[in-house]
Deep mutational scan, measured.
Amino acid sequence: MTGIVKWFNADKGFGFITPDDGSKDVFVHFSAIQNDGYKSLDEGQKVSFTIESGAKGPAAGNVTSL
């Protein structure tokens, strides 16, 4: 699925993605970002991701920028 990064705190390594389908915002951890180098996201960035079952509920996985 796709969405827009609502916010991401690079110091803490997590944030939230707002899915394009209008569903509830999804937690994203830096370890789910699939790019080389520094793993961070920018507010407003368009991303593709999967929904994984995290310890505290749904979380984004396999996050790639579009």
Rank of each mutant, 00 (worst) to 15 (best):
S23R: 08
L66G: 06
F49Y: 10
K12A: 09
V5P: 00
D36I: 11
I4Y: 11
D25E: 10
D21F: 07
S53H: 14
V28M: 05
L41D: 01
Q45E: 12
G15H: 00
A55T: 12
L66C: 09
A60R: 01
L41P: 02
N62S: 11
E52G: 08
T64P: 01
K56E: 07
A10V: 12
A55V: 13
E52T: 13
S48F: 14
G13H: 04
A10H: 14
Y38L: 12
P58Q: 10
F8V: 04
D25K: 04
G37Q: 10
G44Y: 05
Q45S: 10
A60M: 02
S53R: 09
Q45D: 12
G22D: 05
V26L: 12
K46P: 10
G13K: 04
T18C: 15
A59H: 14
D20F: 09
K24W: 07
S40C: 15
K46S: 09
V28L: 07
W7Q: 03
S31P: 03
Q45R: 06
A55F: 13
F27R: 03
I33E: 02
T18H: 08
L66D: 07
G15W: 01
F8E: 00
M1Y: 13
A60T: 03
S48Q: 12
T18L: 12
G54K: 08
T64I: 14
S48T: 11
N9K: 09
V26Y: 05
A60G: 04
S53Q: 14
F14L: 05
A32W: 04
K39M: 08
G22R: 06
N62C: 10
K39S: 07
V5K: 00
V5N: 01
I33M: 05
G3F: 01
Y38G: 09
P19A: 04
V28F: 15
D36G: 12
D42W: 14
D21P: 03
A60V: 04
G22T: 04
K24Y: 09
Q34S: 12
V47H: 01
T64V: 15
N35D: 13
S65C: 13
Q34W: 08
F16P: 00
V5F: 02
T64H: 12
I4C: 13
F16C: 04
A60K: 02
G15S: 01
G61T: 14
K24R: 14
G54I: 05
Q34K: 13
S48D: 04
K12E: 05
G37W: 07
S53L: 14
G57R: 10
D25F: 04
G61M: 15
S40H: 15
V28Q: 00
L41T: 02
K39C: 10
G44L: 04
G37N: 10
K24M: 11
F8A: 02
S65V: 15
G3C: 01
K56P: 08
L66W: 07
P19R: 04
